[in-house]
Design a protein around this nucleic acid. Structure first.
Lengths: 189, 189
DNA sequence: CAATTAAAAGGACATTTGTCCGAACAGATA
DNA sequence: TATCTGTTCGGACAAATGTCCTTTTAATTG
């Protein structure tokens, strides 16, 4: 969940330090609520989080939001689109102030093309992401909301963040009313 | 969904043909219902499907099943565990007779370690899998069962398979009773 | 502080989904 | 054919979740 892929971060930091002045990799600041990636748009950059937390969410046709995951220190953003050359699948928004390395899609592709170590780092991240996504999908489908909420609370604890109720509901794929009920249920029993 | 990653299959077929007699890659047959991977167990082999369809599913503590995805021609099985060295996350079972290339975990790792092209193929597969899994999780959380069932029926059509009602329910994360209701709803209106 | 506005919480009812169980149906056997 | 057996289907009710809207609380302003 939160193993903040340290090695990936180290790799990028090293590349960043090795090429000072060039505009292959830049270190950027984003304030809370800034949207680094916007669903449906072509991306300009690929990011690696140095500090802070973002949420990655779908905005569905029926006006509902679903948070796919929270991305924190050491996690990469936009890589799927960078590989598939698709438009952004979902929006990524800072829920705290965020500091991130940004690199051009071209540079990302270059690393992908040539650097085996980079490939390994990416594969490792992907594997974990698939595990997380699939595991959660199964869990949320097959267990009660209260059960899933409990897991979410544990995740919140680990990430050491505060989430708005809206975000909690969006993560669980339910509405606020149901979330309130589940919260009460967990609080009392 | 079903783009049956042809290039991955070609890659493995080539490797298979290049090393006849060696036991790095073997071509095996499995009959319907055979379980190629069993949840919770260490895996011995990694497979690449040459022909046929499998279902990949979780068996949860509450005795319910959730089908994560259907894997068909050109798709790889067990790679996540091969990378992370974990026990199998889910069970993979043939729902038709299946023909698959099997390779040892050691050989898989060797390719991963040394062969950039292999890494690229894997990354491509992973990216697509993340898109599929995340998209579906969001959809199934935020839309009605009937809506999700419609999508499933389209998928069934594309894969050109027959699914038992049990499997359909497991894919949707619902029980048979609810599935029957949704089927009737789609049939009539 | 009082008055006003905005945000959050929860009541009431509708809809959806799950559970349980009996009816209907199909296949096998005497 | 009559009987048995197992499977599928759907009715009836229970539980969970969504929708709508009122009440409550908190925050803001004059």
């Amino acid at each position: 969940m939160l193993p903040t892929n340290q090695s990936f971060l180290e790799y990028i930091e090293q590349a960043y330090n090795a090429k000072p002045g060039q505009d292959t990799i830049a270190l950027k600041q984003f304030t809370k609520q800034h949207q680094l990636v916007i669903q449906g748009q072509q991306l300009s950059k690929i990011y690696l989080i140095k500090e802070g937390i973002t949420k990655c969410f779908f905005y569905e046709d029926n006006d509902k939001e679903f948070i796919v995951e929270f991305l924190s220190k050491g996690e990469i953003i936009g890589e799927i689109e960078g590989i598939k050359k698709n438009r952004a699948m979902c929006t990524v928004e800072a829920i705290t102030d965020v500091e991130a390395y940004s690199m051009s899609v071209a540079y990302f592709r270059e690393l992908l093309e040539k650097d085996l170590q980079f490939n390994h780092l990416l594969i490792d991240v992907f594997a974990q992401r698939i595990i997380n996504t699939a595991t959660r999908a199964s869990f949320q489908q097959l267990y009660t909301v209260a059960h899933s909420l409990l897991k979410l609370q544990q995740l919140i604890g680990k990430l050491d963040i505060k989430l708005s109720k809206d975000d909690m509901a969006a993560y669980l794929g339910i509405n606020i009313r149901s979330l309130n009920r589940a919260l009460k249920e967990l609080g009392n029993e």
